[in-house]
Amino acid sequence: MNRALTVARLQSVAWPSVVGWSWGILASSFLINLAIFATIRDADLEPTTGGLASIYIVMFIACINVITQDFPFAIGLGMSRRSFYLGSVIHFGAQAIGYAGVLYLLSVLEEATGGWGVGLRFFGLPFFLVENPVLRYLAFAIPFLLLGFIGFAIALVFKRWGVNGMLTLGTVALVLFGGAAVLATWQRWWAAIGDWFADQSGGALLVGWPALLTLPLAVASWLIIRRATP
């Protein structure tokens, strides 16, 4: 466990660049939106900008980098794969917990100020309205984890099996999703699928299902990293 914490600290030695990228890009996205909304001055619309996605995308890329860059470095320094995996999950999980907290507070602030005074809905998610405060916090946190483990898993497939592994993964995904689409079209299931999504609560779509998907990805990542070479 101590060595796992060492890995977490290892990944934080250049922490300003770790935190800077995520929040720097989010901040610039926010400021641009704020400027546009201040210029338009149409308070009735209250659309969601989608700019919030930027921090999730940055974290997804950061998790790919953890495997492609930090893994060869940490293993080269003499960490075990177990410690590296645990440490990376701790490091990334701590960021997800902290960042979700900040995003939650910003969304509360956004509501209280009537969209920063210009009707801007940047941090709030009207479509998936989640009223329960705990669920609302988790709705910010869990998607981080899902994207992070998708990043870990994909990068690990590349690390362990190289380009051929990625091509195989891509082919399998294409066949599975393509086959499902053909099946749904053939059986005329699309309307039912649409209804199913519409029936899901915001909590289920942003917390429940992502959490359920995260678990097998975490297990798969662990199994792959056990025999991965730097």
Partner: peptide, 19 residues
């Protein structure tokens, strides 16, 4: 040996000192 691209020389030494 490769190093994470955001690290400076003193970061690498700090990392090694932790390990």
């Amino acid at each position: 040996q490769t190093y994470p691209s955001n690290l400076r020389v003193h970061h690498v030494l700090r990392a090694a000192s932790l390990v």
